[in-house]
Design a protein around this nucleic acid. Structure first.
Length: 819
RNA sequence: GCCGGAGUGGCGAAAUGGCAGACGCGGCAGCCUCAAAAGCUGUUGAGGGCAACCUCAUGGGGGUUCAAGUCCCUUCUCCGGCACCA
């Protein structure tokens, strides 16, 4: 019979699946399963990262189909974004035309992989049917005060000519083009994600099946820290200076306080003092250093500059510069007068912009105090009396736990206990207030770009900011906009778009020309997939109730913060609107590893890209799928290997040949191996451990090569292989005489009785070292077993003349004799 | 600096505390062939031994245990996240 001609086979079955709508998802009374992968940006070509991501999801979906679930496995395109504009400038085309061309091409490439999508549910975020609902959601948020406009210094990418969210600044550069990010004062739209900070943090606990590292990253990003705001006063003016600390137990050790250079009270404090000039000079100098350098991750660069310095035991390599203001503050717990300094290591945007400095117990304060010869006082002592710290002998701050000293009525308490007691005492006396600070900031969504969702807002001279009425949605992007590549949004230059009449008073008004960050689009697409053509709302509440939540979500780790945090935020917002009844959209998350070539990420600039299309042409999609699953566990990095893909292809051919040599009746031994394999593959699929599932399928195949298989055994092998190599398996399934798709064949069950072996091999160790093994019937009694073992010739030299101290029996496995 | 994760043959990798290296790639040998390709069968951690077999091996050093790649302590290296966050 025929050879394995993957080209014909793959085309045939792709057409079959599409025509027969095998993977159509419809609400039914069967148990549902929603398997979702992060939808791609339509750049035109798929890369190995897509192949890996979507193959993992596809195998799992097909496995769920075969188990009898009603599976929702949709695909769409995250189609807004800057490359379309860049292409428009470069190729003198329109972004919509370019994007749709890319989508078409990409869709055909995905189809060549044989993925089991319900293509009837395809969405593109750049279609007004979709982005209309972005605008709808924005308006709902606007009504509730969750979308607001604010002037502030924002991250600005000079190359993309647009603003960036904090989450989009990576190592001080633009996440997309890596250009150094600048600060710019602008009026911009924000979403009040901070209103959800408690829930975003708290509900992480519900995510039992998310990778720990994603949970940790989000926790850090939200950055909750609990402490006390303490009210110091300036000596002369009696002005309150609030200071935030998480270490209220060290309050008696505060020997000076430090304000950020931008702190609003600074000017007042230095006025008329001899220090005035020097302080002003210092502030000017700090202001010149860009905020990016001081506050963002570009610190890495600065760190390198300081790397040559001696910085043993230093918590960070930055030098701390500062000046004395000439003013004094009063410590409210002991009325001590302490100097007020200004330093660049205190940031205005965190806490209150002022700190109490405790050099003995904070490393940064320690370094600063040493540099400027400021006093130091121990207030936490080691609990070990034989080993006590003194402020003179310390080479670094002691930040650990201990016993309170020099702390008046709190002396002798453990510092953790004192922390609570002091905080309570401060609340009672009004010295301070228990408070929580957060790292999370509101989400900046304005972009000065064309290819995105227009923000549905109109500016009227009389009425101010006016939302576009729901009935007027969508605010459509004008198709013809001038793409010059010069600064500013092309939308500003489209008169018909900008010039409108006010929806309220009908007078002349101006339309907002900013568009939304594309992460807005992807924050709710998983809900749209439940009812992609719904016309009344972003999604049909009834359909979403059936399909949501997503049982398995699969995508790259690069979205651990951005997309996954925003999606969680939107879900909570929809819950508040009463549209969904759950807190979290994604039950289980798998972050797949990257595909590398020669130890490096595949990229155009490195020139090490392996094109999936070329591999499909040479070996077929099934071999590619098999290889990419087999080469490494799903979560770890995968090294592309040109030779190993050949191995995958060989394996398929090897299975293919079995059909020519089927026996009438297979040996019972092979049937037992089959059932073992069914068990192993089922368990591994459930845990998305495809590499070991495949290796057990290879073992079964090897066993069949040794002793042969009958039709029954071979059919089962083909079924087990079908989620991985679907075209290949459908073809064999048909050759075996089946009329229906193998997807409908059902997932095989294993017979537990067949897994029980009659004879088992027991390993015998002497003093933990392997010395012999015996084969015995499963039900051998311990006494008998002991007899057999002790008469084993191989053991004689090891046991001779030595008394047996212990005889350990691990049932059905191992015996260890200790002599 | 803090928080995660990882270090196992030439390579990708397996191992509920119980035979380390399953499965595959590559290598070597053989069969088939005029030859090649394809395929099939062996073999393949290191060292020693004619052999049966022995010794050593999961980044390093300690420990717990009858038994450790796996648990604990310590240390080194690499990767990722956060970072003058008070």
């Amino acid at each position: 019979m025929g050879d394995y001609i993957f080209k014909e086979i793959e085309k045939k079955w792709q057409q079959f699946w599409e025509k027969e709508k095998i993977f159509k998802a419809e609400v039914s009374d069967r148990p549902k399963f929603y398997c979702l992968e992060m939808f791609p940006y339509p750049s035109g070509k798929i890369h190995m990262g897509h192949v890996r991501n979507y193959t993992i999801a596809d195998v799992y979906s097909r496995y769920k189909w075969m188990q009898g679930f009603n599976v929702l496995h949709p695909m769409g395109f995250d189609a807004f974004g800057q490359p379309a504009e860049n292409a428009a400038i470069k190729n003198k085309t329109r972004p919509d035309i370019w994007t749709h061309k890319c989508i078409e091409w990409m869709r055909s490439e995905l189809k060549k992989m044989g993925f089991s999508y319900d293509w009837d549910r395809e969405i593109s975020t750049c279609d007004s049917d979709y982005y209309k609902w972005n605008q709808w959601i924005f308006l709902k948020m606007f009504e509730r005060g969750l979308a607001y406009k604010k002037a502030s210094a924002v991250n600005w990418c000079p190359s993309c000519q647009t603003t960036l969210a904090n989450e989009e600044v990576v190592d001080g550069g633009c996440w997309r083009c890596h250009t150094e990010v600048k600060q710019k004062e602008l009026e911009q739209w924000y979403l009040k994600i901070t209103d959800y900070k408690e829930r975003l943090l708290e509900d992480l606990k519900q995510l039992k099946h998310w990778p720990q590292r994603v949970i940790t990253m989000q926790t850090n990003w939200i950055g909750k820290s609990q402490g006390v705001e303490i009210y110091f006063r300036q000596k002369e003016s009696n002005k309150v200076i609030p200071v935030f600390t998480t270490r209220v137990d060290t309050i008696f050790g505060a020997t000076y306080i430090v304000l950020a250079p931008e702190h609003p009270l600074v000017a007042e404090f230095i006025k008329g003092k001899p220090q005035e000039k020097e302080v002003a000079k210092f502030i000017a100098k700090v202001a010149k250093e860009s905020k990016v350098v001081r506050a963002s991750s570009e610190i890495n660069l600065v760190k390198e500059c300081w790397a040559t310095q001696e910085n043993k035991g230093v918590s960070n390599g930055l030098k701390k510069e500062g000046v004395f203001t000439g003013a004094y503050a009063v410590n409210p717990v002991n009325n001590e007068e302490i100097p007020i300094w200004i330093a660049d290591y205190v940031l205005m945007e965190y806490g209150t912009g002022a700190i109490m400095a405790v050099p003995a117990h904070d490393q940064r304060d320690f370094l600063f105090a040493r540099e400027h010869k400021l006093p130091m006082r121990m207030v936490i002592q080691l609990s070990d009396v034989s080993c006590q710290l003194t402020s003179d002998s310390m080479t670094e701050a002691y930040e650990g736990d201990g016993i309170q000293v020099n702390s008046r009525q709190f002396n002798g308490l453990a510092n953790q206990e004192a922390k609570i007691k002091i905080a309570e005492w401060m609340e009672q006396t009004g010295i301070g207030k228990i408070q929580t600070h957060w790292r999370l900031r509101d989400w900046l969504i304005s972009r000065q770009r064309y290819w995105g969702t227009p923000i549905p807002i109109i500016y009227c001279l009389k009425c101010g900011i006016v939302p576009v009425p729901y009935a007027d949605l969508p605010v459509e992007l004008p198709k013809d906009a001038p793409f010059t590549g010069e600064g500013g949004s092309p939308l500003e230059k489209v008169k018909e778009f900008v010039e409108v009449s006010c929806p309220k008073c009908k007078s002349k008004a101006r339309r907002e020309t900013d568009t939304m960050a594309t992460f807005f689009d992807s924050s709710w697409y998983f809900l749209r997939f439940c009812s992609p053509k719904y016309k009344e709302a972003p999604f049909d509440v009834k359909e979403a109730k059936y399909w949501m939540t997503v049982e398995q979500y699969i995508g790259g780790i690069e979205h651990a913060i951005l997309h996954l945090l925003y999606s969680r935020f939107f879900t909570k917002f929809f819950k508040d609107l009463g549209m969904v009844d759950f807190d979290e959209p994604f039950q289980r998350l798998l972050t797949q590893g990257m595909v590398l070539k020669d130890g490096e990420v595949m990229s155009k600039s490195r020139g090490n890209i392996v094109d999936p299309d070329a591999i499909i042409k040479k070996y077929g999609a099934d071999s590619l799928r098999l290889f990419i699953l087999f080469a490494a566990p799903a979560e770890t990095e995968l090294e592309w290997d040109d030779r190993a893909i050949e191995g995958a292809y060989k394996f398929l051919k090897r299975v293919w040949r079995i059909k020519n040599n089927l026996k009438e009746k297979a040996d019972p031994a092979i049937v037992r191996v089959l059932h073992k394999t069914i068990k192993k593959v089922s368990e591994d699929f459930q845990e998305l451990k495809f590499n070991t599932a495949i290796s057990s399928l290879m073992e079964l195949t090897n066993a069949i090569y040794l002793s042969g298989a009958d039709k029954e055994v071979f059919s089962k092998l083909v079924i087990l292989l079908s989620p991985i190599a679907p075209h290949f398996s459908e073809e064999l399934w048909q050759i075996l005489g089946n009329k229906e798709s193998i997807v409908k064949a059902g997932w095989p069950a294993y017979e537990p009785n067949l897994l029980i072996e009659e004879n088992i091999t027991i390993v015998i160790q002497v003093n933990g070292k392997l010395r012999s093994r015996v084969e015995i019937p499963v039900d051998t009694e311990e006494k008998k077993l002991k007899e057999i073992v002790l008469s084993d010739d191989k053991l004689k030299p090891w046991l001779k003349g030595k008394p047996i101290k212990k005889f350990i029996i691990v049932p059905k496995k191992l015996i260890n004799i200790v002599v």
